[in-house]
């Protein structure tokens, strides 16, 4: 896909679509959206749809950052508390690191 070839309204449509899809627990899509449309939103000379694109880009970036934070907190908590949670912790574990000899 070449963004520079798309008419402005299509860009907006695409950006909005990406944002919406990102709502299905897909923060990675948000991150891609934010990076992909960053230039469109902030570096290009102003055009009609830019304001909305900007909005979606900012929301996507914020959403992705929030998810990263949530995930980081979860992983930290889980790794610190796994032993304390007993069987629950074990059943949630996918890989338990082996000890070293």
């Amino acid at each position: 896909m070449d963004l520079t070839r798309l008419p402005n309204d299509k860009k907006l449509q695409l950006c909005r679509w990406y944002f919406k899809v990102g709502c299905l627990l897909l923060p990675f899509v948000w991150a891609v959206n934010a990076v992909w449309f960053f230039k469109e939103a902030f570096m290009k000379p102003p055009y009609d749809e830019q304001k909305q694109i900007k909005k979606y880009v900012v929301m996507s970036a914020a959403g992705a950052a929030a998810w990263v934070a949530v995930l980081a907190v979860w992983v930290t908590v889980f790794q610190l508390q796994r032993v304390a949670w007993g069987p629950t912790g074990d059943s949630l574990s996918f890989i338990v690191p082996l000890g070293r000899a």
Binding site: L26, F28, V29, F78, Q79, S93, F94, I95, P97
Partner: peptide, 19 residues
Amino acid sequence: NIPMDYITLVFVMWNFGGM
């Protein structure tokens, strides 16, 4: 030898695959 839990795994896979 990296520890991982199922919740993170599912989330990451879902994002990776979906994208």
